[in-house]
């Protein structure tokens, strides 16, 4: 016969036992989870570099095969422009960037680098050709540079001064060539 379970008020076994070892493991896992979540929360709330921050080294190989590395360009101001062929506001911006580039390209202390953010090579090349862009442009392989700078959307432009520190940031497109010229002044 099945017995009826009897309700008892306090069936507590008072004997103190040591915690099972897996409770300790579980506790550690829980702490690990919380720390991870905390770190991640911190990271997800972090924005890109602050102005004045030292920029770590990065390198880019252009569509035409030239190699540029930040650490080998100390002494030059770098204007880093993130763009994509599928981004509508990058089109006008490309033209005015080129305009300013032609003014400064002969001086040896400024370099423009176009970083092609998640794009296809053919579309990117067609874009460069269409807008007659001559400053060095290359794909951001594995999205490494854009992750370094925590690029949210294109276009974004970062100005790195001669000492390798961030001098200015432009989120969104430049409206005019003067804005770019003014920005370049900040790195001097």
């Amino acid at each position: 016969m099945t017995t009826l379970p009897v309700f008892t008020q306090d069936p507590v076994n008072k004997a103190k036992k040591r915690f099972p070892y897996w409770m300790v493991i579980f506790g550690l896992l829980l702490v690990g989870l919380l720390i991870t979540l905390g770190l991640w929360l911190k990271q997800s709330r972090q924005t890109g570099f602050e102005v004045g921050a030292e920029i770590p080294d990065f390198s880019i190989t252009t569509f035409s095969g030239e190699h540029y590395q930040k650490s080998r360009m100390d002494g030059r101001v770098i204007l880093l422009n993130f763009w994509s062929s599928w981004c509508a506001s990058c089109e006008e911006e490309g033209a005015i960037l080129e305009e300013v580039w032609r003014e400064v390209k002969d001086s040896d202390d400024i370099i423009f680098l176009g970083v092609n953010y998640v794009d296809t090579e053919n579309d990117a090349k067609a874009f460069l050709e269409k807008y007659g862009i001559t400053f060095p442009n290359g794909p951001d392989m594995g999205s490494r540079i854009s992750r370094l700078f925590k690029v949210q959307a294109v276009p974004e432009t970062y100005l790195v001064d001669k000492d390798g520190r961030l001098a200015a940031v432009q989120i969104g497109p430049f409206q005019s060539a003067d804005e770019i010229r003014a920005m370049l002044e900040l790195a001097k």
Binding site: V12, N13, K14, K17, F19, M23, F26, G27, L30
Partner: peptide, 13 residues
Amino acid sequence: SFGLLLHRWSALR
């Protein structure tokens, strides 16, 4: 939650 579970664990056998 975890602390309480730990506290009462032996009573919950």
